[in-house]
Design a protein around this nucleic acid. Structure first.
Lengths: 373, 373
DNA sequence: TTGAAAGCGCTAACAC
DNA sequence: GTGTTAGCGCTTTCAA
């Protein structure tokens, strides 16, 4: 003989701290005078149910204020409805917000929910996050990897066969759909623009060497220079973190080094800010003394106060497309080999770039930040 | 007699589409030659376990590549580890990104995960979202409500006793912790700044009338004008959506109306952009003809190209504080009455504001957008 | 057209 | 120290 414990009883025992007593299918079933399976059938609009039963169940649901527990449902159906969106938030806030908007919108239209994560450009945190997302049974992941390695992270994803879409940055050797913009082509646009203005000594304040974007941009930079018959001076090219301070420090150093340059290409908005700070400290004016152009545009900022010549990427579309590719995988609409969607950026010329000084480019050696206020 | 079904068998039957076969505690237990509860005890670091057992379990976990299923755990423990962050994304992207960063950081440090949602300033969508989050068993919610009513949404939250923190905007009659900035005080800062410059006819392009922020700002605006002995011309005050286009349209109308004004206060960055567009179409220059100041600052934009005089809010802190208040509630550290944290904004004066024209303010009637290119 | 019963993966009494 | 067992809330055969 089995003692059928009143659910109410046990429920009261495990009641959450805050005192809310959960309403379950059983409660609805009892109230409507039917079985739990009937309730389930009515709620999911699947299977048979007479219109009377249907009404009775609906009434019970309304009266009891029943809200189905998606977690429990997920446990049974093995579908969580979650999609992870992992980004390296720090770089270009604007870029990732816009991306997130695109991702969220499409996800939402398809009844998926976004679990947000950010890896802070930190591989260890990234690995933890992916593991967490796997633990939370996400059905797919959209991410901008912190760097081009971190095998462990990707191994887990591959083993688990979790559909993954890489945005902006890629990872060599990891099979996954990717959405990015034409970084090499973008670099060429920026460099050609500067060359047209007569610039010959162009500095490139690039991002982290182990991100695919930075490598692609360097490649595009080199090719554009070569195409114009210009020599690439490696001392004018620097690699490093995508942050304001790091870029500032590197431009400080560049100025202090005395190497000649008449223009700077920054790898993102933050780095453009860093470059601008360094130039200002050294009393070098933009664009009279040095032109400054940047990857990534910021439409809001630009509209208020047009200044920076920048490369505009279709970020919102990137988000939407990424989510689209992922959904294809999740619902089995596509299962072929990895797709690589590359979108074209466009150049927006504003006031931070102009003709190179006609005379011999001035050398800034000795006009380092230490001399400034 | 009970037939104990091999878990493998059923597992293979319900295997997810993508072919990954789940590894469960039972598998680990079998491999380690212990019981599932022992595995559970080892994994959660709770309860007793000899170091040998511990090692055996760890080894099995590693070999099998076991990742605990947080969903199943949540079902049992009644704790999902999820916190919903619902925002009206459209307005001031920058504002919400920064907020999200603060929220996410603190959540993450406390082992909570963020479920992202945005209501698009739409009450119906908001209600759906809250219901969805309730269904997903979130342990708390941080949200910027779309408007000051939508009772149904808040009723659900109250019934379920789900700890909620309101950020930026509040809802009258809904008991919840809130974090916001001193909007009335902020309005006063902006208006006083303009009055100091000799402005007397100040227009206010305000946000939606049924958001608490807009109401508070209007109040602050009124008080500041009154304190300076100035008359508030209601025709210079407009209410409406927080978007670029709406603000632009309202400033178009203001210009066309012929009412005199020498300065505009915009309720957010987007609206400042709209105002700027309208002014430009009418060939009215900033700040020579009309000064333009705004709520909310955008540090990135501002640093690249300093232009807009704006009110800077400690957004990141707001996010961190909101999450902190929520955690107090969730873990029971605080259960008193609703707290209301109000942070002070500060004024950043840049180039979009200046002295009011000495002569009789010019009237712009007839210089509407239709006459412009 | 409906209900009984099993079980998703995990944890926590409680017994040993 | 460790194992047995019940059950979190839901869905889904399968039998009636």
């Amino acid at each position: 003989m089995t003692l059928v414990m009143d659910r109410r009883t046990s429920s009261a025992l495990n009641a959450p701290i805050h005192g809310w007593i959960m309403v379950t299918v059983s409660d609805v079933a009892k109230k409507a005078g039917v079985s739990t399976s009937t309730v389930s059938r009515v709620l999911s609009q699947r299977g048979y149910a007479s219109s009377e039963t249907r009404d009775a169940v609906s009434a019970a649901v309304r009266e009891l204020g029943y809200v189905p527990n998606a977690i429990a449902r997920g446990l049974k159906t093995q579908k969580s409805g979650f999609i992870a969106f992992i980004m390296p938030v720090v770089i270009d806030t604007f870029f990732f917000t816009t991306l997130a908007r695109g991702v969220e919108e499409v996800a939402n239209q398809n009844k998926f929910h976004i679990l947000l994560g950010n890896n802070n450009e930190d591989q260890e945190k990234e690995r933890q996050y992916v593991e967490l997302m796997v633990a939370n049974a996400v059905e797919g992941i959209i991410m901008t990897p912190s760097a081009d390695y971190s095998r462990k992270t990707y191994k887990l994803l591959e083993e688990r066969r979790i559909p993954t879409v890489l945005v902006d940055r890629t990872v060599t050797g990891f099979q996954a759909d990717r959405v990015r913009s034409d970084d090499a082509g973008g670099a060429k646009l920026l460099v050609d623009h500067l060359i047209d203005f007569g610039h010959r000594q162009i500095a490139f304040v690039n991002g982290n060497r182990d991100t695919s974007v930075a490598v692609d941009r360097a490649e595009g930079f080199r090719r554009a220079m070569a195409a114009a018959g210009l020599h690439v001076d490696d001392r004018l090219m620097s690699w490093g973190p995508w942050f304001i301070e790091d870029a500032e420090r590197r431009v400080d150093a560049l100025i202090a080094s005395g190497h000649r340059f008449t223009a700077i290409v920054a790898a993102n908005l933050y780095m453009a800010i860093g470059a601008r700070r360094a130039l200002r400290k050294a009393r070098i004016s933009i664009p009279e003394d040095v032109s400054l152009v940047s990857f990534n545009d910021h439409d809001v900022a630009a509209e208020l106060s047009p200044f920076l010549t920048a490369l505009s990427q279709p970020i919102y579309s990137m988000g939407r497309i990424a989510m689209g590719l992922l959904l294809d995988r999740i619902n089995g609409a596509y299962s072929g080999e990895s797709r690589d969607v590359i979108l074209s950026p466009s150049l927006v010329v504003r006031h931070s770039s102009g003709p190179a000084a006609v005379q011999e480019p001035r050398s800034y050696a000795g006009v380092g930040p230490s001399l400034m206020s």
